[in-house]
Write a protein that binds this DNA or RNA. Structure first.
Length: 603
DNA sequence: TTAGGGTTAG
């Protein structure tokens, strides 16, 4: 219902205008009122005035302005109203079509945006350079690469390929749709690369998890003379540092931010917390976290999962309580972080409680990931029957993640019977993960069931699955040294192996004997011992002991989970050589000190 | 006379 007083008040404020500007005609008056509309009710009254004065039909500019005001207003239901206005324009022009496309895109109605474009082409209305950025954004959101390519064809045909806005939209569209080569192709052709061109390139790669490429581009971008990196670029780069463990670069970005920006926003600060956590500097992350004036659930979940990574389960739970006390609501990611924290620290009772709370509150719909965490928690603690019951009672579809987690627990706790169920279910899901077959064959190997080992291995060969080779990385004076198992490629290979030999002797005096239960091969013990000796983590430790100052912390990053022998070995080394050794494996951090590990042998 | 690209964090 239109309320008359609204128009009255708008008109009242307009009196000033007519008083001071006698030239003002009816159309200008209406356009002035249009600009002042704050609500859809006000707008409807002004729209009625345009119609009453026949301006809507007689002036294309007026009609376009009415349409644009409504389409870009953000009022509830505004696009439906805009569509009805659009249909009443006798002869809509390019501007009107562009308005509708942009309106729908801002409204997240991407299919509608594409339909408007189709209508435009079919009606013989020529698009212009303003048409394409929004349209390409619609393709980006829909991941419609086919339509995107077609539209690129139109851009080329109509000669808009040189427009920097169109070019940047194309870079973004291709990048976000996973067509990296095409996005690079457009990027390389650019005569003038703007901040948006670079950030499209960098963030598309970040979105695909291509962290190294992301950092390479970021470094290149920083080298550009006329380009000032802004906060959003820094956030993406920090995220890449966190995911690659590039602490030095992360620290230099932090330094740059402190020098150039007086007040860091919450996203930047959260990225810093996450970067420091994932690069092993828990104290630094906590320091930044505590100094933050304002935190949200993303900040908390970075910190909670950070504490989980470092095996600080109890602290993670306290942090979770603090978050609730601060009046913030937990979301699905926070629950995953908390459940993970419980799992990493063996806090079974607490984990169960959090999971039940989540179900009871009903604000967060449990996903397979949450069930995966619970299964992991129970499985690690040896509660295999309960873990299996949890999987079987899942109200949502069981996925490979839950069965993989269960299988892993069965292997650790040597329960071949239940492990077989997990293996069967995983194979039913047609897993192409070579790791699954290895865990299966490992489990059978432990139970000396060699026929089953052979079957699992044959399956790997038949399916042509490639095992991810394990590696360990040590950073020394800004240079990374990467070692694989039995690595002989390093220039200092001779010294490293001499050191390894010496370490073996020292370890023997400390009562170490190799744990061969996790070696997969059906070979004799001597061969197994030799293989174990050359695991990448040990080679990396030997290298670090040789070339880092005595007493300094040794930091190692590895791509796979640590085997139990490397774990025992590293604990002993930390006591013999009086070194703290931090190892970041696929799941978490291990801090080895005085013969113990922060994971309390629970990982 | 009307407008457009990269929105970043767990």
């Amino acid at each position: 219902m239109i309320k008359a007083p609204i128009l009255q008040s708008l008109l009242a404020s307009r009196d000033d205008l007519t008083t001071h500007n006698p030239e003002c005609n009816k159309e200008q008056e209406c356009l002035y009122l249009l600009k002042r509309c704050k609500t859809i009710d006000e707008f409807k009254q002004v729209h009625a005035r345009f119609i009453k004065l026949s301006l809507f039909c007689s002036s294309q500019y007026s009609a376009s302005s009415v349409l644009a005001t409504c389409a870009h207003s953000g009022w509830e239901n505004s696009m439906n109203y805009a569509a009805s206005i659009f249909r009443r324009i006798d002869d809509p022009c390019t501007f009107d079509f562009n308005t509708m496309i942009r309106g729908y895109v801002n409204y997240m109605s991407f299919e509608e945006a594409l339909c408007v474009y189709n209508e435009m082409i079919e009606g013989g209305i020529e698009p212009d350079n303003f048409t394409y950025p929004c349209l390409l954004k619609a393709c980006t959101w829909l991941k419609s690469i086919r339509e995107g390519k077609q539209i690129h064809g139109h851009v080329f045909k109509l000669g808009f390929e040189d427009d920097v806005f169109v070019q940047n939209s194309l870079i973004n569209m291709y990048g976000r749709c996973g067509e990296m080569a095409l996005s690079s192709e457009v990027f390389e052709k650019l005569e003038f690369k703007t901040a948006a061109s670079w950030s499209s390139m960098v963030s598309a790669r970040a979105g695909m998890g291509m962290w190294s490429e992301c950092l390479m581009l970021f470094r290149e971008m920083c080298g550009e003379a006329n380009l000032k990196a802004e906060e959003s670029g820094m956030v993406t780069a920090l995220s890449a540092c966190a995911n690659t463990g590039a602490l030095n670069l992360g620290m230099s970005i932090h330094g740059f931010l402190l020098r150039n920006i007086s007040k860091l926003n919450i996203a930047v600060q959260t990225s810093l917390v996450d970067m420091y956590v994932k690069c092993g500097c828990l104290d630094k992350a906590l320091h930044i976290f505590k100094k933050m004036e304002c935190r949200n659930n993303l900040t908390y979940s970075a910190m909670i999962s950070g504490l989980a990574l470092h095996g600080e389960g109890e602290a993670a739970l306290r942090m979770f309580s603090e978050m609730i006390e601060e009046g913030l609501e937990s979301d699905h990611v926070v629950y995953v972080s908390v459940l993970n924290a419980c799992s990493h620290s063996g806090l079974v009772k607490e984990g169960r409680r959090v999971f039940q709370e989540m179900l009871r509150e009903g604000k967060v719909e449990p996903t397979a990931e949450h069930y995966g965490c619970l299964v992991d928690l129970l499985g690690r603690a040896g509660l295999l029957e309960e873990a299996l019951e949890t999987i079987e009672s899942m109200p949502i579809k069981q996925n490979d993640v839950v069965w993989r987690s269960f299988l892993s627990s069965c292997r650790v706790h040597q329960n071949v019977e239940l492990g077989k169920i997990a293996a069967r279910e995983l194979l039913k899901l047609n897993s192409h993960n070579p790791g699954d077959y290895l865990v299966i064959s490992n489990m059978y190997a432990k139970a000396q069931m060699w026929e089953d080992v052979a079957r699992a291995r044959t399956e790997i060969a038949i399916k042509g699955l490639k095992q991810t080779p394990g590696f360990s990385i040590v950073e020394l004076k800004g240079k990374t040294h990467r070692f694989v198992s039995q690595d002989r490629s390093h220039p200092q290979c001779k010294e490293i192996y001499k050191m390894l030999h010496q370490m073996e002797w020292q370890l023997k005096f400390e009562g170490y004997s190799p744990d061969m239960t996790q070696t997969l091969l059906n070979v004799d013990d001597e061969e197994k011992r030799e293989r174990l000796k050359g695991h990448s983590q040990k080679v990396a430790i030997a290298f670090a002991l040789l070339y880092t100052p005595p007493g300094s912390i040794i930091k190692i990053a590895r791509n796979l989970r640590m085997c139990s022998d490397c774990h025992t070995y590293t604990k002993k080394i930390s006591i013999i050589y009086e070194r703290k050794i931090v190892v970041r494996d696929r799941n978490r951090f291990h801090l080895f000190k005085d013969g113990t590990c922060s994971c309390k042998d629970y990982w």
